[in-house]
Every structure is written in C-alpha cells, then in structure tokens.
C-alpha cells in the first residue's frame, strides 16, 4: 500500500478539515455534553476538576518545597502553573488515543468529518483547563504575586499549543485506531515525560544537562511556551523557534498521512 495521497485524497482531506472546523456548534456541544455527562448527578459537578487539582498542587507543593529546599512562596505558584498546563497537554494526548474508537457510533453510520472529533476533544480539554486555571489567581493571591506584562505572552503560547494539538490528536488517533497497543505505549511515554519535563523541578537544578533534557523535549517546549510567561518570564527565542519547527514538522507528517488514511479510519474501528 502506497502512503502517497492522490490529489483526490487531498481534496477530501481538506474538505474534511474545513467541514470539521465550520461545524463548531456541533463539537462545542459534544464537548460540553462530555463534561456534563462525566459530572452528572454530582453535587460539585465539574468543579471536582478544580478541587482535585488544588489538592494535588497543595500536597505536592508542601512536600516538594521541603524536599527540594525551596521557598514555598515561589515553589508552589511555580508548580501550580506548570501542573495546570501539563494537565492540559497530557489530557489532550491521552484522550487522542481514543478519539476515533470512542466515536465509532457516529463514524460508522454517518458521513461526519473525522476532524470534528479532534476539535471536540481539544474543546473538551480546554473546558477542563478553564476549570483548572481558576486555582492560579487564587495561588497568586495567596502568595502575593503581582501579575506583570510578561503574562500576556502566555496567550500566543497557548495558541501555539492548540495549533500543535490538532495534528497531534489526528496522528495519535489514527495510529491508535490501527495499532491497538499504542494507547498503552503512549501512557508510558507520558509517565516518563512527566519526570523528564520541568514541572516539579526547575531547569537550573539540572545544571549542564539542561539543554539536552529540556531544549529538545517536545513536552518541555510546549509546556514552557505557556507556563513560563505565567511564571513571569518570557520564553527564550530557542523555545519559540523549536516550537515553530515542531509545529511545521507535525503538519508535514500528519497532513499527507491523514489525506491518505482518512477513509480507512472507519474500517479500523
């Protein structure tokens, strides 16, 4: 089987992406439904997301600030920002493994655009992110951190993260539908990535090894592009540059693959 898409494949893939994007009301609604369904009949509802995040950050913040001999007044806000952004990245990647297999009911029966389900997934994770991010201003208020202008750089960072998330979801979704071991592999990669990414520790603690662990680690790049400004520091030019390159690479790989395999996804379900 050749992996080269025909012009017709391209045409249909582009139509799929266009229809997927323009059906925003559908993926928006599906994402809201996902969240509502998860917390239906619960008193606190989706704010369980916020509460469990607060509990984690509070607990780990206390323990690790002692362990790393860090001042809790700087460590806890740092951890809170990083962990909130990491949860978004991790959530998108983990959910991506089931993006098509969990939508089989729709895909097998109607000609719905495949990309619509990627948008639904990203939207759902954004809603969770919106619940999590509530704790950041609270933590900042608690430790008396005053916001500065650098924080605005988190917005372009967030846009970059979402632009990258789209091909990631499609790519992981396709591979996971075809090869059923992928979700487990990805789960393991994420577990290791959590420790190799500066979420709980700081880059300067790493010393001379830092450029190797952080400089090209895609998780670290996309984490820092959002989290660093929120921590009051502009990301380095290197971080921006690598992020751009990674996005270009992701689209260059996923585009043709999606064009070629789009119609096959339903057959693998």
């Amino acid at each position: 089987m050749s992996l080269k898409p025909s012009p017709r494949d391209w045409q249909r893939a582009i139509a799929d992406a266009r229809q997927g994007l323009s059906a925003w009301h559908v993926w928006n609604l599906l994402a809201m439904t996902d969240i509502r369904q998860r917390y239906k009949r619960s008193r606190v509802g989706p704010f369980w997301i916020t509460l469990s995040m607060a509990a984690f950050v509070g607990g780990i913040g206390l323990v690790y600030s002692t362990l790393f001999k860090q001042d809790i007044r700087t460590y806890l806000p740092y951890l809170a920002v990083n962990y909130v952004v990491w949860t978004l990245i991790q959530g998108i990647i983990m959910d991506a493994t089931g993006v098509f297999s969990s939508s089989g009911v729709y895909l097998r029966q109607e000609a719905m655009p495949k990309t619509l389900f990627a948008m639904r997934l990203i939207m759902r994770n954004l809603i969770m992110f919106a619940h999590n991010i509530i704790i950041i201003p609270l933590v900042f208020l608690l430790f008396g951190i005053w916001p500065d202008w650098e924080m605005l750089l988190a917005i372009p960072g967030m846009i970059m993260l979402l632009v990258a998330a789209y091909p990631v979801v499609m790519l992981i979704g396709m591979i996971s539908t075809r090869f059923r071991d992928t979700p487990v592999i990805i789960q393991n990669v994420l577990q290791i990535a959590f420790f190799l990414t500066p979420i709980m520790w700081k880059v300067d603690q790493l010393g001379s090894a830092a450029p190797f662990v952080v400089g090209l680690n895609p998780f670290a790049i996309f984490l820092r592009i959002v989290a660093e400004p929120m921590n009051g520091r502009a990301p380095s030019l290197w971080t921006w540059g690598v992020a751009f390159l990674m996005i270009a690479l992701l689209y260059a790989v996923t585009g043709p693959l999606f064009a070629r395999l789009r119609a096959r996804i339903v057959y693998w379900l």
Binding site: H25, T33, R41, E110
Partner: peptide, 20 residues
C-alpha cells in the same frame, strides 16, 4: 438512537441529536 445520552434530559437530547 445514535448519539443520544441516557444521562441527559429529553430536551438536551433533542438539541444534541438535532445538531448532529
């Protein structure tokens, strides 16, 4: 019955299924 959700109300399901 595709896309209907038992946890949601009839009205919510009408909107959800209708949008699909």
């Amino acid at each position: 019955t595709m896309g209907m959700d038992p946890e949601m109300s009839g009205a919510e399901n009408i909107v959800l299924r209708g949008a699909i």
